[in-house]
């Protein structure tokens, strides 16, 4: 899926004042690309992602997927939220089967497919567990599986690993890269963590804070899985970190 943002700006009205959070974004996300939106908190990166998802709409400019304007959420653009968004009243299997269920897939078929995704994210054996019984990392694995279960062309991820400890985060990053390689999805990954962006993405788009504007785009051509201790990795990280202003 190719996603195009053309002079996209977004402002929110609050008590008579207009606050511009995103300004003049021009960006094309190529089909199958792993793109990271990087910036300090409050730079509007989540707003950009929400607009791509169809959960918010640009105040100015236009936004298209495969050439047609985005008018609302679509199962073709799966979303993984920052905070835990799993339905607490559904077990793991039923959470993952939600998308296929509302789109009318037969029970047998959707559970079979849900089991495949459970296996893909390494949670076999936890089908009947409820979200409150899972650790933070496991919950985000389920959230990823749930978004994948609709077989979306694009996966939009809003700092999905921000709340996890470093080891778990690194593990999930590696698995995400593996899933991306296997599944051939376009991924847009929002983060404020330079290391994470450099580890994951083909391209890192660095945003300034309020209003969020694109400062610079880095193409990262290191081979995957990337070695965090390699000189190129460390140098790239340093260059981007200096730009973001820590």
């Amino acid at each position: 899926m190719t996603i195009k943002l053309n002079d996209v700006s977004k402002s929110f009205k609050s008590q008579e004042k207009e606050l511009e959070v995103v300004k003049d974004i021009n960006l094309t996300v190529e089909d199958g690309e792993f793109l990271s939106l990087l910036g300090p908190s409050g730079c509007g990166k989540t707003t950009i992602l929400r607009m791509i998802a169809g959960l918010d709409f640009p105040s100015k400019g236009d936004l298209t997927e495969n050439g047609s304007p985005v008018t609302g959420p679509s199962p073709g653009r799966g979303f993984v939220f920052q905070q835990y968004s799993l339905f607490p009243w559904r077990n793991v299997l039923d959470n993952i089967a939600f998308g296929p269920e509302v789109r009318g897939m037969e029970a047998r078929e959707r559970y079979e497919s849900a089991r495949n995704y459970i296996e893909m994210v390494g949670l076999t054996g936890f089908e009947d567990s409820y979200p409150h019984e899972l650790s933070g990392g496991m919950k985000q694995r389920v959230a990823i599986a749930r978004a994948l279960a609709n077989d979306p062309e694009a996966l939009l991820m809003d700092e999905p690993f921000a709340a996890l400890d470093v080891q778990t985060r690194h593990k999930l990053q590696e698995e995400l890269v593996r899933i991306w390689q296997e599944e051939d999805k376009t991924i847009i990954f929002v983060t404020h963590n330079v290391d994470e962006a450099v580890f994951l993405a083909d391209r890192v788009v660095v945003l300034s804070s309020s209003p969020g504007e694109i400062i610079k785009t880095f193409k990262i051509e290191l081979e995957r899985l990337r070695d965090r201790t390699s000189t190129q990795f460390i140098e790239l990280k340093k260059e981007i970190t200096d730009l973001v202003g820590r």
Partner: peptide, 16 residues
């Protein structure tokens, strides 16, 4: 709100 929005992104209708 996050439950509502995630349901929307997974293709659920208002009634669903």
């Amino acid at each position: 709100k996050v439950y509502i929005e995630s349901a929307y992104t997974m293709g659920a209708s208002q009634l669903q």
